[in-house]
Write a protein that binds this DNA or RNA. Structure first.
Lengths: 231, 231
DNA sequence: GACATTAGTGACTTTTTGTTACTAATTCGC
DNA sequence: GCGAATTAGTAACAAAAAGTCACTAATGTC
């Protein structure tokens, strides 16, 4: 008979400090960028992710929405949880546990407030160690789930050209895609529908605008993919 | 100029009660099963997920490992975080926030302790609402990530036949796979290597045993898949 | 009007996947 | 011992999907 320890179910819960840390991502100058907030004077790093403790009876997503709205001026439409972090790494507010949440917002050409700034993921300033971990995980999660959920569409305005969409995919995947293949696959997916509007960017032929409008499609009955392991 | 609210970064973190809730999954009688613990007398439901509050300075995975070990007798080798849950749903210990963690263990034919029992995911007893949510998310996460991480291999002993492996994939995906296609894809993936052992199950031709031994492979340069959306 | 530039597509090639049908090695019933 | 049943493993072909190239289309620039 194997040794068994006492069951934990009887212990009382302990009190912990909890933070919700939000990674707001948006395409900026042909790169994915995160919105950071200037840290108060005296902090060890100059910049932090927007974060706060959830209020009593406030859900995690609600908290993320409130936090993102406070730095953006309006609430993003899309959130995805990145995970809970409680390694020994330092959090700017010394929270025991952080819940990381990524928010995706379309590219806009508004200027951020004086307290905030967009940083390309490839050129982040020094962040508290836990914040750096969360940003990295957020980017990895976005890349990993881009073809499982409509992430890419949340980084675009409600109507967009197919070239824009391809650009976002290339941004997320970090590699160029072939135009004809991309469009053929998109066609087959019934995820977008054309509008009757066209977008002219100056030079070149104007492009038709599409909107995200997923329709029912025959269930994908494919084999297993062994080639997607991320290890 | 858009209205801006005050930045949250200055607020103090609040104290919250936190639980780690573990979903131990294993193949059992050709179905995925979760290990549940008999609840103490007086609880509203008869069964709960194994859970506990993390100890001071204990990481979330460490806590999950300790909790799983206390019910299994030995620590599982594989964990994956399912997310943080803080909706209004009731937790057996009334934790404000739960971190759900799924642990995968190979099929074993040992009998669980009197306090624990395996339940197929399709025939779970009544659980506290938050526990039900966590189990459902855990199963969804396992299904969703099966071709991104070596989940399936963690549900098998260290050596296994290709039919076993295919069986686990079918369990996770919930649909039958074609033998020849499955093997061809696996071949191309360099994820397993043959041992020189053979497994005879009584009737039928004996099967060669393989082990999980991922080798370098040429990076997967594929197009985008629009057909994997789970919405 | 020639040309640079971006959008969009047809058609061909190559690769991958689905499927069928076979061969191989074992146990069981007789 | 021998044929049927059972499970493992594979070759070969068919179908589908993805990669590629080369073109046509519609605009602005000079």
């Amino acid at each position: 008979m194997r040794e068994r320890h006492s069951l934990p179910m009887k212990s009382a819960v302990r009190r912990t400090t909890l933070a919700v840390d939000v990674v707001v991502l948006s395409p900026r100058d042909d790169a994915l960028a995160a919105l950071l907030v200037r840290a108060p004077a005296g902090a060890r790093e100059r910049w932090t992710l927007p974060w706060d403790a959830p209020r009593p009876d406030e859900g995690l997503e609600d908290a993320a929405s409130r936090i993102a709205e406070s730095v953006l001026g309006s609430a993003p439409a899309f959130f995805e949880q990145v995970g809970a972090f409680s390694d020994g790494k330092r959090h700017p507010g010394d929270a025991d546990v952080s819940v990381g949440i990524v928010a995706l917002v379309p590219a806009r050409d508004d200027t951020p407030t004086p307290e905030t700034e967009w940083f390309p993921l490839t050129a982040l300033p020094t962040l508290a160690p836990r914040h750096r971990t969360i940003v990295e995980r957020a980017a990895a999660v976005a890349r990993q789930r881009v073809d499982q959920s409509p992430l890419a569409f949340r980084l675009l305005p409600s109507t967009f050209t197919l070239s824009d969409l391809q650009g976002v995919y290339e941004l997320l995947l970090g590699r160029p895609l072939h135009k004809a293949s991309f469009r053929r696959a998109l066609q087959a997916s019934y995820l977008v529908e054309p509008t009757d509007e066209w977008h002219s960017e100056g030079r070149g032929r104007p492009a038709q605008l599409f909107r995200f409008a997923p329709r029912k499609r025959r269930g994908a009955r494919r084999g297993v993919r062994f080639d997607l392991f991320t290890e």
